[in-house]
Design a protein around this nucleic acid. Structure first.
Lengths: 142, 142
DNA sequence: GTATATGCAAAACTTTTGCATCCTT
DNA sequence: AAGGATGCAAAAGTTTTGCATATAC
């Protein structure tokens, strides 16, 4: 399904800002971008979209399951393209690099725990914070 | 160790605001309070501590490992007393109720995954979002 | 007495909203 | 033509900071 159809299927009109923002996330698949990141990157490309529009579009895309929203420790929301493959995150606290992983055993255990507590799960987020290999090497050189 | 010793051990002077805030979290052990919650609850008790002080104390307590900070989906930080027993969170998206759990199998799997990716883990956060039993019952009555 | 902590107000930062204008269908 | 989308600026919410005063040690 192309971008235009994806917007139409969600009842969203096909507009310049929406296509630009969607395209940006496809170009940066796997990256986690804040609203300000989106604004800045587009501006560098000569595309000036108002921040209000960016926030509105990001919210709409999240509701349409086009994007996933996360809250890492930074205090601001970041978004990434929803590629269907659920995954969790390993975030480097030094350089910010994010590694992704998926582990079915953990997922199954989570479902079991939710059931035991009487919860019907709608979403979950597993974030691990650590120091990545590259930054560990740098530490030794100090 | 009492509260006064706990503050001193972290190089923090023993002041009224710090004792009041620490006491509040002990009274509400297991609860997740935002800076504003702390301000409001203390005010209801007749204790007026400026918000700037609350933010500063919460940050210091987090650095001293007295409190744990979380970022649920709400967009603002919440804190809870660090009782040493690491646990994860099941958050009800309807009523905000938080259930806690601990699962050693999941922890072990996380350690294994971090190792495979070359990360030295410093922290992790597993949040599950769902609808709790109470809210599921309410849904049926509509 | 000295260093640190607090309170207040202002500021910084992220996100939301009102409203006039513009664009998609 | 009509409803929805955008841009701008103002506002709202959260958190930080500068500075004078107050407090702990």
């Amino acid at each position: 399904m192309d971008n235009i159809a994806q917007l139409k299927d969600n009842g969203l009109k096909v507009t310049g800002p929406r296509l630009k923002i969607l395209d940006l996330f496809e170009t940066h698949a796997g990256k986690h971008l804040s609203a300000e990141d989106v604004y800045r990157i587009l501006l560098e490309e000569g595309v000036d979209i108002g921040v209000a529009t960016i926030y509105r579009v990001l919210t709409q895309f999240e509701q349409a399951d086009i994007l996933l929203r996360h809250h890492f420790e930074s205090g601001k929301a970041v978004y990434e393209l929803n590629q269907g493959d659920h995954h969790d995150h390993l975030v480097c606290v030094k350089c910010g690099m994010v590694a992704e992983f998926h582990n079915k055993e953990i997922e199954d255990l989570q479902d079991k725990i939710a059931e035991e507590h009487g919860y019907r799960i709608v979403d979950h987020a597993l974030y691990m914070y650590g120091v990545c290999g590259g930054c560990q090497k740098k530490e030794k050189h100090r």
